[in-house]
């Protein structure tokens, strides 16, 4: 077991190295560099070159990469040229924001998906089934960025009940001020998992309840509560 874990970790090393080379290369491919953004357009070349030398951007690309890698191996991600803050601090703040958004979105998507899928299966063929199935298909099919814009237009601009952008006060989302900033992005992000899960659950539940021994019909109040529980599960 430990050997397996160790092997997997070792496999990850070349993959991470490869990813880092590709990411580093992609940054180099983009036009201009960070210095062009940091200093004003009227800054003469001499000033831009001096700053470039100070940040080590005048060195060959492979040297820049190796220097970065050397520091990384010592656990030092360096200081961000943009924010002047340690990169670890910037990353951890971005990571915590990602969790704040991704975890509720995944939970909501899963809960809604299971609920709608189960209900659709139970009422298969009925208008409710059609409604939930249509919701699921819409969730998968509608592009995020379009849904986001529509939700902002409705809830922020027209009804003015939720913020159009931003993340509100920092910290664990516990106050209404923090939570209301999460609602629209969380709903938008949950649509795809909701749609996918809903369709899977509907198909699975339908398969079970349409079997001879577990159809919905016998699971009415006429049968024992144990069978009823089994049926709904």
């Amino acid at each position: 077991m430990w050997l397996f874990v160790l092997r997997r970790i070792l496999y990850a090393v070349p993959i991470l190295l490869g990813v880092s080379v590709i990411v580093f290369g992609l940054v180099q491919l983009s036009p201009g560099d960070v210095v062009d953004i940091l200093i004003p357009p009227e800054a003469p070349k001499e000033v831009a070159d001096a700053l470039r030398a100070r940040f080590g951007l005048d060195k060959p690309v492979y040297m820049q990469y190796l220097i970065w890698l050397g520091h990384l191996l010592q656990g030092d991600l360096g200081i961000s040229i943009f924010t002047s803050q340690p990169v670890v601090v910037d990353l951890s703040s971005a990571l915590s924001n990602t969790f704040k958004l991704a975890i509720p979105a995944a939970l909501l998507g899963m809960t809604l998906g299971v609920t709608l899928g189960t209900l659709a299966a139970f009422f298969h063929g009925s208008w409710l089934d059609k409604l939930f199935s249509a919701t699921a298909i819409a969730g998968v099919s509608l592009p995020h960025y379009w849904v986001g814009i529509v939700l902002v237009a409705l809830f922020a601009v027209i009804w003015n009940v939720l913020p159009a952008q931003g993340m509100g006060p920092e910290g664990f989302p516990s106050t209404w001020e923090q939570i209301k900033h999460l609602i629209l992005p969380v709903v938008t992000l949950s649509l795809i998992p909701m749609g996918v899960i809903s369709r899977l659950v509907r198909a699975s539940v339908l398969e079970i309840i349409t079997r001879e021994f577990g159809s919905l019909r016998p699971c009415t109040p006429r049968v024992s509560s144990i069978v009823a529980s089994y049926c709904t599960l």
């Binding site: 200093i39 004003p40 009227e42 003469p44 000033v47």
Partner: peptide, 13 residues
């Protein structure tokens, strides 16, 4: 201050 210096020297050479 490297960045502040570059901006200032660009405008005040």
């Amino acid at each position: 201050e490297a960045q502040g210096s570059a901006i200032t020297r660009a405008r005040n050479p």
